[in-house]
Design a protein around this nucleic acid. Sequence first.
DNA 1: ATTCTCACCTGTTAGC
DNA 2: TGCTAACAGGTGAGAA
Length: 277
Amino acid sequence: MPELPEVETIVRGLRPHLIGRTVAAVRHVSAHLAQRDPDLPSLRGETITAIDRRAKYIIMQLSSGRRLLVHLRMSGRLQVKEKSARKDKHDHVVVTFVDSEVKLVFRDVRKFGLFEFVNGNNAAGLELLGPEATAITAAELVALCQSSSRPIKTLLLDQHRIAGLGNIYVDESLHRARIHPLTPAARISRRKVADLAAAIRLILRQAIRYMGTTFDSYRGADGSSGRYFERLRAYGQTGELCSCGRARIARTVVGGRGTHFCPHCQRLPNGRRRREA
DNA sequence: ATTCTCACCTGTTAGC
DNA sequence: TGCTAACAGGTGAGAA
């Protein structure tokens, strides 16, 4: 699942190929995307002037002043391929460019992703996003935590509070900061919250350097896998010995999401220790 | 206002 | 072997 580091990696991979390119044609727009945005064919003739990222959103600035919004959600991929590459059954948009041997392909097996112009419907979603997780300060996170009694994991996944984290990097950040994912946010000490803010920034920075995490379907703009997979210490490590050497990584469910943690390092504050389900 | 639940979707895996 | 059911998970709409 593409989270902030994966999206950043894709954006960096797209820029050298697409900046300054003019769209020659928009091909194969799948019905579910055409229904959400009937204007997609009008991308033809636009020149891509910039490609930016906001949390997990990719925003392409166009010469007309319009903006194209892409969100990969669960299974989306945005890849640059040779013009001759065969179309896959899950390719939902194919964009070709003037005087270019490559094409941009939006593939999305589960069809949760967005590929549309910024408009009234989706602009609000962008504006409601919390501060970028990469730049979250201790003070900001302290304020955030004090205002909520929700489990810290649930709070960190709320894009309106802090934007960019997903299931993988929340588990990794809480593990590094040694905080149990079910800890009520307001019950975490200032010192631990500061640790958490530092852990979030560090892990995201490292994950970007390693070009993201490929757990299942994620691929970079050039189709490559993310190398941060090898660095995971909690997510998907159920049953593996924790780096502390004292316990094995357990799995439970928090807010409906698979949650990985070390029962030794990450304990609830009142002494109760939670085991796997 | 805030928080929780469910729907969206399909490939993969577990269970019979 | 072949089938069905459960599961994965980011987000937003609607309910509590």
